[in-house]
Nucleic acid binder design. Structure first.
Lengths: 145, 145
DNA sequence: TATAATTAAATTGCACTCAATCAAAATCGC
DNA sequence: GCGATTTTGATTGAGTGCAATTTAATTATA
């Protein structure tokens, strides 16, 4: 018999592991669809914020995405290289780098509307389960602030 | 009014985003405790499998952790360098690399028993919510196989 | 108003994560 | 038995994540 003292050290008794594994598996499901848009997953969720706000600072991006400038700086630069966003300093506060959508970026949004449904089709959770999971994940995020 | 066609492209309407963000936030909570053990999060969950099985192949590790050899090869090598595991080829099948626990690795297990409780204290979910989240995450993982 | 403290990004370095490819070993089909 | 296929890990390269540090700009304070 396994001594009880080690029970908490089993993968399946943790919350962190299925969270970590499921996040990577779901992200992986995006790849084939995002390849068509020439976006990685991180670039995609960054575009989701910019599509919605039109223009925002790197700091605001980071707060919404839970990412810091170490991650975002290269992501935003690559989005600029692809022509989907512009980067420029705020004139009111030169420390702030603003990122704003371009016409090409706006056009990409129409191509991207299919992605959520395409990925959703790969994920067979009952609607009420998806809602519960969604709620609990946001609660978990809120509890950790 | 925002046109409805873009509603699915909002971060908060997706399951993937809170999953991705929560996984990273939870993993981050492990760092201070794992630093004491000189382990990264990936090294830690790898050790969790080896603590339980005593010895297993890289392939078996990968199936349990949802990781491939591109990730595991360097992780297992670094665990060997720290003295926690041994690596050797199976004599029955030379393709198979076996990873087995060392005395030092076993000793580390005792130090690690505190970690789940320490991290748990940072995550304020009601027990029944944690159980539901756990169940739904494993269901999601199973549905994606 | 100089100086100190704070803030926003960028940079650096390390450790993943994963797709794609490769090499060696084992198994399959005939 | 033997060539074709499959399997197991290792390697490579691109793209993150994140801690720590740096730089430039702004704000607070004596």
């Amino acid at each position: 018999m396994e001594p009880q003292k080690y029970d908490m050290l089993k993968l399946e008794n943790q919350l962190c592991f299925p969270l970590y594994a499921a996040a990577r598996e779901v992200t992986k499901r995006y790849r084939p669809f995002l390849d068509d848009l020439n976006l990685t997953y991180t670039q995609y969720i960054t575009m989701m914020v910019i599509w919605e706000c039109g223009e925002c600072s790197v700091k605001a991006l980071g707060e919404k995405l839970y990412l810091d400038s170490g991650t975002l700086t290269p992501v935003v630069k690559s989005l600029e290289q692809k022509g989907y966003v512009r980067r420029f300093r705020s004139t009111e506060d030169e420390r702030v780098l603003l990122v704003s959508i371009t016409d090409e970026g706006r056009a990409l949004r129409d191509k991207a509307t299919a992605v959520p449904m395409q990925v959703g089709a790969c994920i067979h959770l009952a609607p009420e389960e998806a809602v519960t999971l969604h709620r609990l994940l946001y609660k978990l995020l809120a509890e950790m602030e």
